[in-house]
Simulated assay, not measured.
Amino acid sequence: MLKRRDNTRALAAFVAKKQEIDAMLARIAALSDEHFQVAPDDVTWGHIGSLEDYAALLKRITNTAFREGEHAG
Rank of each mutant, 00 (worst) to 15 (best):
L31A: 14
D53T: 02
T44L: 11
A39W: 02
I21Q: 05
I28G: 03
H35L: 08
P40L: 04
R5V: 08
N7H: 12
E52A: 00
D33P: 01
P40R: 06
W45C: 04
R9G: 02
L31V: 12
A65G: 12
G46H: 08
L25N: 07
A26Q: 14
D42N: 14
R60D: 05
A56K: 03
G73H: 09
K59T: 08
A29L: 09
E52C: 05
R67G: 04
L11A: 10
Q19F: 04
K18W: 07
F14S: 09
L2Q: 09
A29S: 12
A13L: 15
R67E: 15
I21N: 04
L11H: 07
G49W: 11
T64Y: 15
L25E: 07
A39Y: 04
D6T: 03
L58G: 01
H47R: 04
W45I: 01
A55S: 03
P40H: 05
W45R: 05
F14W: 08
R4I: 06
A16G: 08
G69L: 14
L31M: 14
R60L: 11
M1R: 09
M24C: 05
E20C: 01
K17E: 13
L25A: 12
R27P: 00
D6S: 04
S50N: 15
R9A: 10
M1G: 11
H35G: 03
